[in-house]
């Protein structure tokens, strides 16, 4: 299975690439061109950086990527990568993919960024890997307009926000599965098995 990581600049993508590669028969490739990144069997949007800069890198390939997702290209968006699946963000200029309607806004909490391990409630994303306590490092969250796409929630202080969204073969997670130890890696593998295959 060909899995492509869209690399939009800063940040650690090694752990994510290796987490994907733990699944059998997976060939991981890194691509900096957003239009060429969709020439794959599974697209992964990794999660480090700022929305504005990432949206700018995405812009030339935005329409191509969006229509690929609408046509059923399996995709996993992580943290900022999840936010890019939404319309727009308070963090910076530019447009996301708009695959999920909604805006990205700052966490309504005293302690921001949220850094650390937190619980996922009511997780119904995948049958082969139930989410429990996962690792977060973020200041912004996705306010999904359609609550039915939310397949897991997390609460930081008083703010309850989508931990996971899913529509069709596209899954977005606000946490970092590649930093959530063995259960996070199990989630990535289950995604490849259940959603992408």
């Amino acid at each position: 299975m060909r899995v492509t990581l869209f690399d939009y600049g800063a940040g650690n993508i090694h752990s994510l690439a290796k987490a994907l590669a733990t699944a059998e028969g997976v060939d991981v490739r890194v691509e900096v061109d957003p239009a060429r990144a969709v020439d794959t069997e599974v697209l992964v949007l990794p999660g480090v950086g700022a929305f504005g800069a990432a949206a700018a890198r995405l812009a030339p390939g935005r329409e191509v990527m969006r229509s690929a997702l609408e046509r059923g290209l399996p995709c996993l968006g992580i943290c900022l990568g999840m936010q890019l699946l939404f319309d727009s963000s308070d963090e910076g200029e530019g447009q996301g993919l708009g695959y999920f309607p909604g805006r990205v806004t700052r966490l309504a909490a005293r302690r921001v960024p949220q850094i650390g391990w937190n619980q996922v409630d009511e997780d119904s994303t995948l049958s082969g890997a139930k989410l429990d306590t996962v690792y977060y490092a973020h200041s912004f969250v996705c306010r999904a307009e359609d609550a039915s796409v939310v397949t897991g929630w997390t609460t930081h202080e008083e703010d309850r926000f989508p931990a996971v969204v899913r529509r069709g073969r596209v899954v977005g997670v606000q946490f970092h599965p590649e930093k959530s130890s063995s259960s996070g890696v199990a989630f990535v593998r289950a995604f490849l098995r259940e959603v992408a295959s």
Binding site: N12, H14, S15, K18, A19, Y135, A137, H176, E178, K179, S180, S181, S182, G184, V185
Partner: peptide
């Protein structure tokens, strides 16, 4: 390390 460690 990053290639094998799955915590921050």
């Amino acid at each position: 390390t990053a290639e094998r460690l799955f915590i921050p």
